[in-house]
Design a binder for these strands. Structure first.
Lengths: 255, 255
DNA sequence: GTTCTGGATTTATACGGACAAATAAATATG
DNA sequence: CATATTTATTTGTCCGTATAAATCCAGAAC
């Protein structure tokens, strides 16, 4: 029986272009070409390594993907980092995961209205004072607990007011509904978390004392052209909600 | 004078391989090749598009980078997704950015001690009860404000206790010091945020009333082999600290 | 001085070919 | 039957070449 050696291991007689890429990476790390300077040209590298242009370019492609250089026609390969930038990435497929609202929670709509941002609201939403918003107020509840999880204020552009009429309105995120109904998608989002005393207005609905510790999270959603189109403000009494997030180290996010 | 049309715009007569890639992507999206099936071979694509193998491979590389197919020698190009997976990524180069502690803040060490996790502490740290930790207590201050920003408890494995002796101890993140001194690096991290009443023990040091609203953030750092090696617990009085985070939509994280 | 032009340089795109390695299926072997 | 072995197929690696597009810079034009 043949030995079937190292079946799934890594005997991997490395490819030529990988070797060249490793060599280039090593040299960049050691500072042979300082950040901002140009790497040798493809032609020079061909001569130096005795490889074809194809092979050299393949090697340079790897170094590019590692984030060490950028290449531009007519210029050359500019070193932009000496070390592969270590990235911690938190990637999610939908903003639901980011929000960490499980499917067991839903919004019980209390009311909705047109509002105009005064100075305070404008500061909270980070929009210009006088801007018009459609406000949806709701209580977030869970199937599993009797106490409400928190109070939700959802500000959307007036043209999106129609979302409140959807059958699934209280059960799915408003930004998803906006995407389905109007095609507006989130390109950029921002999260802000802070503690404050529970506002008197919400205290009774949530069954806690005014001024008691509360967690408030503001989420701003920007669409194309960086237009702010939705802001949600959620306020949770002490002990009813914890926001958690994981981060994974990765040199380059995998598929 | 030549018109120099569209100087920096995008007249971009697309490259051949980009066109082919776009066509393939479109077809995959429309389901011409279901997920799990094989794309036509390179040879077939060469014939179909009247392009060289190089060009076809370049196109396939793009589709691969989009996350729609995986390619394997001897097998072919397997379709793994009909739509480019939309990811929201929050990537940072160091966990400092994640922590959002600017350089203008520092820790004023109050004391340090060996502790053994009792049931409460074990629950907070998510470790097994009885585990030994080295605890550093400090007040986080800013050069710009008189009031302290918050209270910091840093739990590290006992073998890392030496970090308190560093000259820069109060000015740089402990996990960085551990990396420099002991080579332990963060592979995985976890953040937890919640509101609570300010513990009496910290209230005086922070100049607020016990029970007043406070923001508590727990950060857990895991090294290789998923070993928990550092946990920090920071508690901020109302109005002294806001945690913010941005998320960017990206099909594939750029350099 | 400034602005434009042309040429040299460099990477981008694209063609051709060849052999190696990986895989799956068919075939030979026990 | 089960198990090696071979064979055909497909992608991976590598070479050669050619032209286009982007960039920089020196020199011309003003």
């Amino acid at each position: 029986m043949p030995v079937n050696m190292a079946a799934k291991k890594e005997p991997r007689k490395s490819a030529r272009y990988r070797d060249i890429a490793a060599e280039l990476q090593k040299e960049i790390r050691l500072g042979s070409t300082p950040v901002g300077e140009l790497l040798p040209t493809e032609t020079e590298l061909m001569a130096r390594f005795g490889a074809s242009r194809q092979t050299v370019r393949e090697a340079l492609r790897i170094v590019t993907e590692q984030g060490l250089i950028v290449r531009r026609a007519g210029l050359g390969s500019v070193v932009i980092a000496a070390e592969p930038p270590v990235l911690f990435t938190h990637s999610v497929k939908s903003l639901n995961e980011w929000l960490r609202y499980s499917n067991e929670t839903y919004r019980q709509v209390v009311g909705s209205s047109d509002v105009v941002a005064d100075r305070n609201l404008a500061a909270l939403l980070k929009c210009e004072p006088g801007k018009h918003w459609f406000l949806i107020e709701a209580i977030r509840r869970s199937d599993e607990f009797a106490d409400p999880l928190g109070w939700v204020e959802i500000y959307v552009l007036r043209k999106f007011a129609g979302v409140v009429k959807r059958r699934d309105h209280g059960r799915s995120p408003v930004h998803e509904q906006i995407a389905k109904m109007f095609g507006e998608t989130i390109e950029y989002a921002q999260l802000e978390v802070f503690a404050r005393g529970m506002p008197a207005k919400l205290a009774k609905a949530l069954g806690v004392k005014a001024g008691s510790p509360a967690l408030t999270m503001v989420r701003r959603y920007y669409g194309l052209r960086e237009e702010l189109f939705e802001v949600t403000v959620t306020t949770h009494p002490e002990g009813r909600y914890t926001y958690t997030m994981d981060m994974q180290r990765s040199l380059r996010p995998k598929v």
